[in-house]
Amino acid sequence: MSIGIIGAGAQGASIARMLAKSGIAATLANRRGPASLAGLVEELGPTIAAGTVAEAAAKDLVIVAVRWAALGEALGGLPAWNGRIVVDATNPVSFLDADSPERQDESNPLAAFGIKIIDLGGRPSSQVFRDHVPGARVVRAFNHISAEDLQSPDTEGGKRVLFFSGDDAAAKAQVRRLVEAAGFAPVDLGPLDIGAPLVALPVGPLAAGRFVMA
């Protein structure tokens, strides 16, 4: 199974590091092109290659780890997904600049943390995400765990739990195997529209926890 990662910011790069540590091959891409990733892929070693977004999107399993506001730009114009697996590792938040007046917005309880929840009109983010990847089998995973924890699946007491959810059993089985290969304890939260909101940062009831399975 070939793997692509779209997004090389904090989360995407951390996912690539996680795979590299386990010897799992992947193609990493961002909107700036392969040349901008030369230093990172050299650091990560031979299993991670830089590619274009189209090259990463052509893999059997594609992890999308871009900022929510960049989804349309990152995924627009790509060829048909044709039933391939797309892992939603995004969260519907925007990040506020340090000097933004919105950092002082008292109506936003997360303003002090530099985060603002994006209003999706009452729709779960998983539904909105699916609109960007028509024809894909979407699984939600890797969005609720910090970059630091992605690098350390083994911790005192056992293995870190990594939640996932989706509507296609075969697609979830592939993601489960990937999670296990990376050293984590996979926990299936059921269908996408039920499981995904549970781990949606920053307000999902399971999103803030650092769960460990003995």
Rank of each mutant, 00 (worst) to 15 (best):
Q11P: 11
G7T: 07
A10Q: 15
S2G: 05
A65C: 11
V161I: 14
G135N: 07
V133Q: 02
L37C: 08
G51A: 11
V139H: 00
G195H: 05
L206Y: 00
G72T: 13
F129N: 09
G77F: 06
A57R: 08
Q174N: 10
V41I: 14
G9Y: 12
F142C: 07
Q104W: 10
D60H: 10
A35Y: 03
F95C: 07
D193H: 15
Q151A: 13
I117M: 15
K59R: 15
G114Q: 07
F95M: 07
V187R: 06
L37S: 10
L96Y: 05
G190L: 03
A111D: 09
G9C: 12
D154Y: 15
I85K: 03
A74K: 03
H144L: 09
A13K: 13
T90I: 12
G122P: 14
G76D: 01
I194N: 13
G9T: 15
A56N: 06
T155K: 09
R32S: 12
L198G: 04
S100Q: 01
R140Q: 06
D149N: 12
S152Q: 13
S36G: 05
G51M: 08
D119H: 10
D167A: 02
A25D: 12
G72F: 03
L189E: 02
A112M: 13
W68I: 10
P92Y: 04
G209R: 09
I115F: 03
L61Q: 14
A214K: 13
N82W: 08
A26T: 11
A214V: 12
A20V: 11
R17F: 01
D167H: 01
V187G: 00
M213H: 12
L40S: 11
F211N: 00
Q127G: 07
D60V: 14
G4Y: 09
A80C: 02
D105F: 11
G183E: 04
L19Y: 03
A208F: 11
A147H: 08
A173K: 11
G12S: 02
R123G: 08
P46T: 13
G9P: 14
G166C: 02
S126C: 08
A173Q: 15
P134Y: 08
P191T: 01
G195E: 04
V138P: 00
L71W: 05
